[in-house]
């Protein structure tokens, strides 16, 4: 290959047809995910007052803990933005470094969430304790499962492509994983407001 076929394009994630398709298909998926979470939010909002003598939102929630979790996830959203910027600059090392940092922040978030659920269970809020309990664990637990999956996805990419450099194949894969990660953060912003702030404030 004499011609410079492998120079870095401005948008490596959308430089191939496969990349373009992946990008569009993933937004279609995110639209569907929005509806999935909406059904859980609607159920929670309808049932959050039905505590059936089990502990309720005001007895359980500690805003400080949730505030720290929010900051962790928001910061991890920014580090994944930096990963994409590094990718577009052609810095593979930078991208890998920012992605690992994103994973670390995500793990921190997950640790707090596991502690939180353990604590609530300890205080007498089992999954079947009340309608509030079931809808709360379903909503926040589904989000936690998404975080877990996202961490697994990014770690898989990081290990598989640890020596590959930026290629037209993996640029779109990293980009899609970052979109997923932002979406997780978007959902959490609403959980923070609707579940925790409204649970304590109203």
């Amino acid at each position: 290959m004499a011609q410079p076929a492998h120079t870095l394009p401005a948008h490596p994630e959308k430089a191939t047809l496969e990349g373009k398709n992946k990008y569009l298909g993933f937004w279609f998926f995110l639209g569907g995910e929005t509806v999935l979470f909406a059904s859980l939010f609607g159920t929670y909002l309808a049932l959050r007052g039905s505590t059936a003598d089990a502990p309720g939102p005001a007895d359980l929630f500690h805003l400080e803990l949730v505030f720290i979790m929010t900051m962790l996830l928001l910061t991890s959203s920014l580090t994944s933005v930096f990963a994409v910027i590094s990718m577009k600059k052609g810095s593979f090392k930078g991208m890998i470094m920012w992605m690992w940092l994103t994973v670390a922040l995500g793990l921190g978030f997950l640790g707090f969430e596991i502690y939180e659920f353990y604590e609530y269970n300890h205080l007498g809020l089992g999954y079947t304790s009340s309608a509030f309990a079931s809808s709360f664990y379903s909503l926040v637990g589904t989000h936690g499962a998404h975080v877990t999956f996202g961490i697994g996805w990014i770690i898989t990419l990081l290990i598989r492509y640890r020596k590959a450099g930026i290629t037209l194949t993996n640029a779109s894969k990293f980009y899609t994983a970052v979109l997923y990660w932002h979406f997780i953060d978007v959902v959490w912003v609403f959980i923070f407001t609707v579940v925790y702030l409204l649970g304590v404030g109203a």
Binding site: A5, H6, A10, K88, K89
Partner: peptide
């Protein structure tokens, strides 16, 4: 660009325009 190997390492840096917008 018809026979690009998608698994080849992309070389070089971003163009000056891209650098600026980034």
């Amino acid at each position: 660009m018809s026979h690009v190997d998608p698994s080849a390492r992309l070389e070089g840096k971003a163009s000056r325009d891209t650098e600026r917008s980034l």
